[in-house]
C-alpha cells in the first residue's frame, strides 16, 4: 500500500497496521502523499490501486485524520462535521451519530474549536474520518494528546472498525503506543522499511524492566538463574523473563528493587532504539523517491 523509496507494504482488511518511525522518517509525508495533499516529486501513491484524486467521493471510502490541529478555530465542532456531511450528501443524523461514537457531548460540539483540547480535537478528527463510513482509515499520530484512557478508547474504536472488515493505517513515533493499538507493525527509517510483521512476532517473548539498588548484584543473580539480562537503555536491566520470575530471584537474594515492570518489546525496542539513537533525524533519507 505504501512505499517509501521503492519499498512497499500492504495493509489487509481486518488489520490495524502501525506505521512506526522516528520523527522525520517521512511517516506524515507518506500519509499526506497518499491522501493527495502533498504531490510526490516522483512516483505515485495509490490506495486500492487508485490515486486518492481518482477515488470518487474519497472521504466516503478512505477516512483521514492527518492533522488534528487543522480545523477552522472559529467553527464549532458540529459545524465542522456538518460541512463534511454536506459535501458527501450525508444526513445530519450521521453527524449526531459520529459525535456520540467519539464521545463528544452536545455541549462540547457547540463550542468553537479554538476552545478544544488536543484530545478533543483528536476525537473530532476521528469523527470526521469515520463520518463517511469508509473502509480504510489513514490516521497520523491519532493517539497524540490522548490520556491513557483515551488511548484505550481509541484502541477499542479502531479494533471494532477493523473487526468489521476495515483497514487501518496509523502512524506513531512512540513504540509503546503502536504496540498497544496495532496488530501489525511496519518500522520505517532511513526511507525504507526496517522491519515488519505482526505485533506479537516483532515484540517477541516476555520482557521485564528492573532496577535494583545494586544492579550488578542483581545481574549476577539473574544470570546465575539462567536468565538473559542486559543493561537497559532506560537504566537498570532488561531481562527476558516474566516480572514475577525476576522479582522472586531478587527476593531470594535479598535485593531491594527500585523498579519492576513488564517491558513491552525486546527485539523491536532494541531495533527501534538503534534506529532512533544513532542517526536521529540526521542522515535519515527524506522520501525523495516518493511512495508508490
Amino acid at each position: 500500500m505504501v512505499a517509501v523509496n521503492d519499498v512497499s507494504f500492504s495493509a489487509l482488511p481486518g488489520q490495524v497496521v502501525g506505521f512506526l518511525g522516528p520523527n522525520g522518517a517521512g511517516k506524515s509525508t507518506t500519509l499526506r502523499i497518499l491522501a493527495g495533499l502533498t504531490l510526490p516529486s516522483a512516483g505515485s501513491a495509490t490506495i486500492g490501486g487508485l490515486a486518492y484524486r481518482d477515488i470518487p467521493n474519497p472521504a466516503s471510502q478512505v477516512g483521514t485524520l492527518l492533522d488534528a490541529s487543522a480545523f477552522h478555530n472559529g467553527r464549532t465542532g458540529r459545524e465542522t462535521l456538518k460541512l463534511a456531511a454536506m459535501t458527501m450528501d450525508l444526513p445530519d443524523s450521521r453527524v449526531q451519530q459520529m459525535l456520540e461514537v467519539v464521545g463528544l457531548t452536545d455541549q462540547e460540539a457547540k463550542r468553537r474549536i479554538r476552545n478544544y483540547s488536543l484530545g478533543m480535537r483528536q476525537r473530532l478528527g476521528l469523527a470526521a474520518a469515520l463520518l463517511g463510513n469508509p473502509r480504510v482509515l489513514l490516521l497520523d499520530e491519532p493517539v497524540n494528546g490522548l490520556d491513557p484512557a483515551g488511548i484505550h478508547w481509541m484502541r477499542g474504536v479502531l479494533r471494532h472498525f477493523a473487526d468489521n472488515g476495515g483497514t487501518v493505517l496509523l502512524s506513531s513515533h512512540l513504540l509503546h503506543e503502536v504496540e498497544m493499538i496495532a496488530d501489525h507493525i511496519v518500522v520505517i527509517g532511513q526511507g525504507r522499511i526496517m522491519a515488519q510483521g505482526s505485533t506479537e512476532q516483532l515484540v517477541g517473548g516476555p520482557g521485564t524492566q528492573v532496577q535494583a539498588g545494586d544492579d550488578a548484584a542483581l545481574g549476577q543473580a539473574l544470570t546465575a538463574a539462567g536468565l538473559v539480562a542486559r543493561t537497559s537503555t532506560e537504566g537498570g536491566l532488561y531481562v527476558q523473563a516474566e516480572p514475577e520470575q525476576v522479582g522472586l530471584i531478587a527476593a531470594q537474594h535479598g535485593l531491594a528493587l527500585k523498579e519492576l515492570r513488564r517491558a513491552g518489546s525486546g527485539r523491536l525496542e532494541e531495533l527501534y532504539l538503534q534506529l532512533t539513537a544513532g542517526h536521529d533525524r540526521g542522515p535519515i533519507a527524506p522520501t525523495t523517491g516518493g511512495p508508490r
Binding site: P56, N57, T87
Partner: peptide
C-alpha cells in the same frame, strides 16, 4: 492493497462529490 485474493477496498463506481454540494458548502 492490490494483493491477489484481497477484496477491493475502493469502489471506483460510486458517484463522486456533487458540484452542487460543493457550492452549498
Amino acid at each position: 492493497m492490490t494483493a491477489p485474493g484481497v477484496p477491493n477496498l475502493i469502489d471506483p463506481q460510486v458517484p463522486g462529490v456533487r458540484f452542487g454540494s460543493l457550492v452549498r458548502v
